[in-house]
Design a protein around this nucleic acid. Structure first.
Length: 403
RNA sequence: GCACAGGUGGCCGAGCGGUUAAUGGCAGCAGACUGUAAAUCUGCCGCUCCUUGGAGCUACGGAGGUUCGAAUCCUCCCCUGUGCA
């Protein structure tokens, strides 16, 4: 992987002992004023942004093998700290050379910190200043996650980008609750950074990639309160991290609120660093947010929906289990170039789903992922051509109804 | 032929005098899914009619009977399984 010669604006202020640390570079190719195109250079390769990142929680994007992910154009994958810590264990992954080698994924990886589990494992955890006590969803055993521990696990996994340990604020949340949550997330971000900087040379590939390091991103919280979001962003930016994320969105709030919070937060994040919107969204959403200036997004939706029979197409959403497709010999999406659409009929895909054949999950996930990845590619292309507004309009219209 | 055991809504299978259009499961139909406790979850699922709610009709192998009231009890018949002839 060649290194881009772009600016070093993502550099972390290095502690005295870490003068050689070399984090990501983020080279902006084009800023349209409404969305921008850039190349993000990471230890495991370059990523063209805006980018959609498939979620591979347990060292696998459910139902899709790595070679097909590459073929579909995946540039960077997500992994999850909490899940990999529980199974197979981060120390085991470290002994096996890190997550990239373990799962045979040569391209970039980002690991989430476990912060989302603070939110979703609601019934199985207790939050304190020190960290979060979890009960394993696998066997009920007790575990403790602190910012420091999350960093240790993420360093052992060795992703290119690691996330600060945060508390994903629930919705709805009162102003007091959102403030307390933001404050905790901020204190945890400082602890995450300090621990990360002190241990970043322990990453499994440190020796073979001389001087390159992982990149710690901070996460903005603040619930649905624009001023709290502002405060969270401003204080987080003081930590001078190589990238920033917006968390706690798409947790049940109306779409308009999501849009407002993104619009209010984006301008406060450094323009020369990647901005990551966590856990989003539907096809029209990812286009819209990219057009607002978001560089990175991830979402389980394409893969989860695929496993449940919901397919995203250029004509809108399509529920493959519907009776109407039982003898439909057409392709899933006539405009899609993916291998699934090139080869199989809707009738066949419906049959696989109805018969509960595992291949249904494979083919459906592959298509939905290809659709998302292609959608992002078309966003990048539209920026070059200056046709992003038209693309956005088209996507908005088509994602409303059924195919 | 005799003796047991059975015949319940598309299928399997509860119920064994009223609160039963009849528990469950499957199949079927539709919906949901946004930093993955998710190959998960939700709704509908005899027929007809009116607006939610309801009204009417038809239903537990068949025909009779007992009872205020039967899928549930009795009689006969038909059918299935197992055992004995």
């Amino acid at each position: 992987m060649q290194r881009a010669t772009g600016c070093q604006n993502g550099r972390i202020a290095p502690p005295s002992t870490m003068a050689t640390a070399m984090p990501l570079t983020f080279s902006i190719q084009q800023d349209t004023g409404a969305g921008r195109r850039a190349t993000m250079q990471l230890p495991h390769g370059a990523v063209e942004t805006p980018v959609f990142m498939p979620v591979g929680t347990a060292a696998t994007v459910k139902a899709v093998p790595q070679h097909l992910l590459e073929e579909a154009g995946t540039q960077i994958l997500l992994g999850n700290t909490y899940h990999l810590y529980l199974r197979p264990g981060h120390e085991r992954i470290r002994r096996l050379g890190g997550l990239h080698r373990f799962m045979s994924w040569p391209r970039a990886i980002l690991t989430d910190s476990g912060g989302f589990q603070v939110f979703s494992l609601n019934a199985l955890r207790t939050v304190s200043e020190e960290g979060v006590r979890f009960r394993s969803h696998l066997d009920g055993s007790a575990h403790f996650f602190s910012p420091e521990h999350s960093m240790d696990v993420q360093i052992a996994l060795g992703a290119d980008i690691v996330m600060a340990f945060d508390e994903c604020t629930e919705y709805p949340a009162t102003r007091e609750r959102a403030r307390a949550s933001l404050e905790l997330t901020q204190r945890w971000a400082v602890r995450s950074r300090d621990h990360f900087l002190a241990h970043q040379q322990e990453v499994p590939w440190y020796a073979e990639r001389q001087g390159q390091t992982q990149n710690l991103f901070g996460i903005v919280q603040g619930g649905m309160y624009a001023d709290l979001r502002r405060e969270s962003a401003e204080r987080l930016v003081e930590l001078d991290l190589p990238g920033y994320a917006m968390g706690g969105l798409s947790v049940g709030e109306p779409r308009e609120r999501t849009r407002e919070i993104i619009a209010a937060t984006l301008p406060l994040l450094p323009a020369d660093k990647p901005r990551y919107l966590m856990g989003v969204g539907y096809p029209d959403e990812i286009v819209e947010y990219a057009a607002m200036g978001v560089d990175m997004m991830d979402c389980v939706l394409p893969t989860r929906a695929a496993r449940h029979g919901l397919l995203f197409t250029s004509q809108g959403r399509l529920n493959i289990k519907n009776q109407r497709y039982a003898e439909d010999q057409g392709p899933l999406d006539p405009e899609c170039k993916c291998g699934v659409c090139q080869r199989y009929t809707r009738a066949y895909l419906r049959h696989l789903f109805a018969a509960k054949e595992p291949l249904a999950a494979v083919l459906h996930s592959l298509h939905n992922l290809a659709f998302y990845l292609d959608t992002m590619q078309s966003v990048r292309d539209a920026m070059v051509l200056g046709t992003l507004p038209e693309l956005l309009e088209r996507v908005r219209q088509r994602q409303g109804g059924a195919a």
